[in-house]
Amino acid sequence: DEVRLHVNGHTIEFRGIDEEIFKILEEAAKRGADEEELRRLAEKLLR
């Protein structure tokens, strides 16, 4: 299960996240989070 999030012209792939987590990451990206911040956030949410 892989999703792709487009951030500042880059595509970031995440594996094993559900739609709810994806929406949180998408919102963070809209607020200016970079790839590293998004990955840290995803790790926290998946715990």
Rank of each mutant, 00 (worst) to 15 (best):
D1W: 15
E26F: 14
E27P: 00
L41W: 03
A33N: 03
A42N: 02
A28R: 06
E43L: 03
T11S: 12
E36K: 13
E36R: 12
E20I: 12
E2V: 15
E2S: 10
E20V: 12
E2R: 08
E36S: 13
N8P: 03
E2D: 07
A33H: 06
H6A: 07
G9K: 02
I12M: 08
H10M: 13
H6F: 04
A28T: 07
I21V: 08
G9E: 05
A29M: 07
G9S: 04
G16L: 03
N8C: 07
I12Y: 05
R4D: 04
K30N: 12
E19A: 10
L25G: 00
G16R: 02
T11W: 15
E2I: 15
K23P: 01
L38I: 14
I12L: 11
K23G: 08
L41T: 04
A42F: 11
A42D: 00
R47V: 15
D1Q: 08
L45P: 02
L45F: 06
F22G: 09
I24G: 01
V3T: 07
G16S: 03
R31T: 12
A42W: 10
R47S: 15
E35Q: 07
F14V: 03
F14P: 00
K44P: 00
D18T: 14
L25M: 03
E20M: 13
E27N: 08
E37H: 06
V7C: 12
L25V: 03
A28Q: 08
F22E: 02
L46Q: 08
K44G: 07
G9F: 04
E20A: 10
E20G: 11
E13W: 09
H10T: 12
D18N: 14
H10E: 08
E36D: 13
L25D: 00
R40Q: 08
E35P: 07
E36G: 14
E20W: 15
L5Y: 01
R39S: 05
D1G: 11
D1L: 12
V7I: 12
R47P: 07
L45C: 13
I17H: 03
F22W: 05
E36C: 11
E13N: 08
I17Y: 05
T11E: 12
A28L: 10
H6K: 09
T11L: 10
I21H: 08
E27D: 12
L45Q: 01
T11Y: 15
D1M: 11
G32W: 01
I24F: 09
D1H: 13
V7A: 04
V3I: 14
I24C: 05
D34P: 06
K30Y: 13
D34E: 10
E43P: 00
I12K: 01
F22T: 05
A42S: 05
G9Y: 01
H10S: 12
L5I: 15
G32F: 02
A33V: 08
A42P: 00
N8T: 04
A33R: 03
D18I: 04
A42V: 13
I17R: 02
V7Q: 03
N8M: 06
H10Q: 08
R40F: 10
F14Q: 01
D18L: 04
R4T: 11
L41I: 09
F22Y: 13
E35D: 05
E26I: 11
H10K: 10
I12S: 02
I24E: 08
A28K: 04
N8D: 10
E26L: 13
A29S: 09
E13M: 12
I12D: 03
E19T: 10
R4K: 14
N8W: 01
I21D: 10
L38H: 00
K30L: 07
D1E: 12
L45S: 02
L45N: 01
E19D: 13
A33F: 13
I24P: 00
I17E: 02
G32E: 01
R4V: 11
R39E: 04
K44R: 08
R40T: 11
G16N: 09
E27M: 07
K30M: 11
L5E: 03
R4P: 06
L5N: 02
E13A: 14
E2K: 10
G32P: 01
R4H: 13
L45E: 03
E27V: 09
G32H: 01
N8Y: 02
R15Q: 12
L46G: 03
L46V: 12
D1V: 08
E37A: 07
G32Q: 01
E13Q: 03
R40K: 14
N8L: 04
E19L: 11
D18S: 13
I17V: 06
H6M: 08
K23W: 07
E36V: 09
A33E: 04
R31L: 14
E43W: 09
D1P: 04
R47Y: 14
G32N: 02
V3A: 06
E20T: 10
V7R: 00
I17T: 05
A33L: 09
E19C: 05
K23S: 10
H6V: 15
R40H: 12
E35S: 07
F22R: 10
R31V: 08
L41A: 01
L46P: 01
D34A: 07
D18F: 01
G16H: 05
H10D: 04
V3K: 15
D34L: 06
I24W: 05
L46M: 12
L41K: 01
N8K: 04
A28I: 05
E35F: 13
L41Q: 01
I24A: 07
K23R: 13
K30R: 13
E20P: 05
G16T: 03
E13S: 10
H10G: 07
R15M: 14
L25Q: 00
R40N: 13
K44N: 05
E43H: 08
R31N: 12
E2A: 10
E2H: 12
I21T: 09
E19F: 12
R47F: 15
R15N: 12
D34T: 11
I21L: 09
E19I: 09
I12G: 01
D1K: 07
G9P: 02
G16Y: 05
K23D: 04
E26K: 11
L5D: 03
E13K: 07
D34K: 12
H6N: 12
E43Y: 05
E27Q: 13
R40I: 13
I17G: 04
V3Q: 15
R39W: 06
D18W: 07
R40C: 09
E27L: 08
E37Y: 14
D18Q: 07
F14H: 01
T11V: 15
G16F: 06
L25E: 00
R15P: 15
E19P: 12
H10R: 03
I24R: 09
I17C: 03
A42M: 13
I24Y: 11
H6I: 13
G32T: 01
I12T: 02
E36Y: 15
D1I: 08
E37N: 06
V3E: 05
E35Y: 08
D18M: 03
E27W: 13
E35V: 11
L41S: 00
